[in-house]
Amino acid sequence: MNWVYLAAAGLFVGAFLCLFRIGRGPSAPDRAVAIDILGTLVVGFCCLLAIRTGQDFLMNIAIAWALMSFLGAIALAKYLEGKAFDE
């Protein structure tokens, strides 16, 4: 099972690169993009956790996280454009 830890380490490095962009990003959309990508990385991480523990409810979290991060991205995009959520 050591390869799961190797994969998790890779995802950790990716998440830190995202955090770097969130902290550094010169404009607000840069940060929004990094947040969106961080959400997708978390889906992959839930997946690795499901493999390591063998419990499939973790996949439900992954599905919910994927949809929530999509909603978050849309909401951020609407906000940046200066509109309400239902426009």
Partner: peptide
């Protein structure tokens, strides 16, 4: 979950790109 990710991520990217340009 794969189907959801494949369907939602291009739409999210498109919305973010458009709002970035318009802002």
């Amino acid at each position: 979950c794969m189907a959801f990710v494949l369907l939602t991520s291009p739409v999210g990217a498109h919305a973010l790109a458009r709002s970035a340009y318009r802002s």
